[in-house]
Simulated assay, not measured.
Amino acid sequence: MTFRMPAEWDPHERTWMAWPGPNPTFTDAGELAGARAAWASVARAVRRFEPVTVVHGPGQGDSARELLGPDIDLVERELDDAWMRDIGPTFVKDAEGRLAAVDWVFNGWGGQDWARWEHDSKIARHVADLAGVPVLSSPLVNEGGAIHVDGEGTVLLTDTVQLGSGRNPDWSREQVEAEIHAKLGTSKAIWLPHGLAGDYGMYGTQGHVDIVAAFAGPGRVVVHSQQNPAHPDHARSQLYVDILRGQTDARGRALEVVEVPAPTVLRDEDGDWVDYSYINHYLCNGGVVLCGFDDPNDEIAAGIFRRLFPERTVTLVDARAIFAGGGGIHCITQQQPRATAR
């Protein structure tokens, strides 16, 4: 049976998230409180457009309910961390519109020494069970933030993730592509060599594509554009633009590349390069939930997304506390497409 991962702009049944709990990502009470407030802001923004289910750890339900409010569904399961894009399943549909869930191997973003994944490695199956859909197991170490599809046969990948030594050291490029295509129903992979510079720090993913580039419609891709030459991502983002402008999608269309200027801030409070990016947005039914940084470029980015998605409401949510933990809005959300057959 053939399955296909729908584009993110296709209709959703609901959005899945996970609730931050005490863990190595949020090392003190202040960081955890800030993360919870940010996660809750995203959940409430998404809930304006579609149902949201938040998975929380044992004993964390009261804190979740207090911040999330009464109209978001809560489910208790053992958790290690809170990045549902990566630990949750990738939902796919068969030719008749029935859902299934791909369960990639999750190993803490390449077995990083700070990460724990005893429980998170099982969340994809828990979510699939809660959604009432069958599981498609994959032997590939992969995460949801490491792929982006157009729903028409094309997938974006990065060398340092799927081919990285901490994930799939014995896999060839051809083997990775074959497994990705088999599970997602894609036929063409476009590879970028790496992710943003800041994504290789302590809590980084080692190059997730969903902070670099994302499809924004058939034949169209948005790309992070760091316009300040002082930042190491200036050269990186120009490389991504050049690569993508030279590519066609699975249907032979030349890609239209839309550059989205990065926020003006270059370093965080510790003096490290930031990987703040508007590319790490989330599309939900009738909405675009966009990372905000209290930055002059927030409204520029919002304007770009309003032009790209004129039928959707663009909502900016402050994502700085999320980025401090190693990701953005796309990283903490996972869409369940709407089934068209039962």
Rank of each mutant, 00 (worst) to 15 (best):
R4P: 00
M5K: 15
A7H: 09
N23T: 00
T25M: 15
L32H: 10
A45K: 03
T53N: 06
G57P: 01
G69F: 05
L74N: 06
A82C: 15
P89R: 02
L99K: 03
R125H: 14
H126S: 05
L130Y: 13
V133R: 07
S137G: 07
G144T: 06
G145E: 04
V149Q: 05
L163H: 12
S165R: 09
G166T: 10
S172W: 11
R173H: 09
R173S: 07
G185C: 07
I190D: 03
D199Q: 14
Y200F: 15
Y203H: 15
T205C: 06
D210L: 06
P218Y: 10
G219E: 05
R220T: 03
Q226P: 01
Q227L: 15
L239P: 04
D242P: 00
I243M: 12
Q247S: 09
G252N: 09
R253T: 03
L255S: 02
L255D: 00
D272N: 13
V274T: 15
D275H: 09
N280T: 07
L283R: 08
L283T: 04
G287A: 12
D298A: 00
E299C: 04
T315F: 04
D318T: 01
A324D: 09
G326T: 02
G326W: 00
G326L: 11
H330F: 10
C331K: 08
C331F: 09
I332M: 02
